[in-house]
């Protein structure tokens, strides 16, 4: 069983936690996010014949904004950035977040989840906004915690990406 450490980062209120809640196995309560600043869940995926276990580190800024604890990023094999498609500023903040992450763990496979895609009327992103979200070298997906759109795809893509990623050199 291959295990990978995946960090989920996003601005407060982007629905990051809700996004994965029903797709993962969890034993820790959401309270961990506001107390310890991290909540760890498990997601099993299959890539080809390989069973994989993604350990999802759901990171929360301690003061509820963009400030995340970089220690928790250490050793991450992949990152899920979550932004709220109905609040453009959360998308704008992604590039700052991404910089923090890359500084901490290097250019690991990353995916940007543009969440709340079910709220089409409130959607604030143009297609060019969507294409640029998070900057260069990330995979992008529209997701919905409500309908489940894109969630499994996001895990699957990231699992494959971490599996085929070159071994980290340190």
């Amino acid at each position: 069983m291959i295990q990978k450490k995946i960090c989920m980062v996003g601005v407060f209120g982007t629905g990051k936690t809700c996004l994965v809640q029903q797709y993962v196995h969890s034993i820790f309560s959401v309270k961990y996010l506001s107390t310890v600043g991290v909540k760890i869940d498990r997601k099993e995926v299959k890539v080809g014949d390989t069973d994989m276990m993604l350990m999802l580190w759901d990171l929360e800024g301690r003061d509820g904004t963009r400030d995340i604890t970089t220690s928790y990023l250490r050793g991450a094999h992949g990152v899920i950035f979550v932004a709220d498609g109905t609040r453009k500023e959360t998308v704008d903040q992604l590039s700052d977040l991404r910089k923090i992450v890359v500084d901490a763990v290097g250019p690991v496979p990353a995916i940007v989840a543009l969440n709340k895609s079910d709220l089409a009327e409130e959607w604030k992103l143009s297609s060019s906004d969507e294409a640029a979200a998070g900057g260069e070298g990330v995979h992008r997906l529209k997701t919905s915690a409500k309908t489940g759109q894109g969630v499994e795809d996001a895990f699957q893509w990231l699992a494959e990406a971490t599996l085929s990623a070159p071994e980290k050199t340190r």
């Binding site: 295990q3 450490k5 196995h25 969890s26 034993i27 820790f28 961990y32 310890v36 600043g37 991290v38 760890i40 869940d41 498990r42 276990m53 350990m55 580190w57 604890t69 220690s71 928790y72 250490r74």
Partner: peptide
């Protein structure tokens, strides 16, 4: 055990 393991190390960081 895997979740506990991760959380143990997260708590170390914390």
């Amino acid at each position: 055990a895997d979740l506990i393991s991760s959380m143990l190390s997260a708590i170390q960081d914390f």
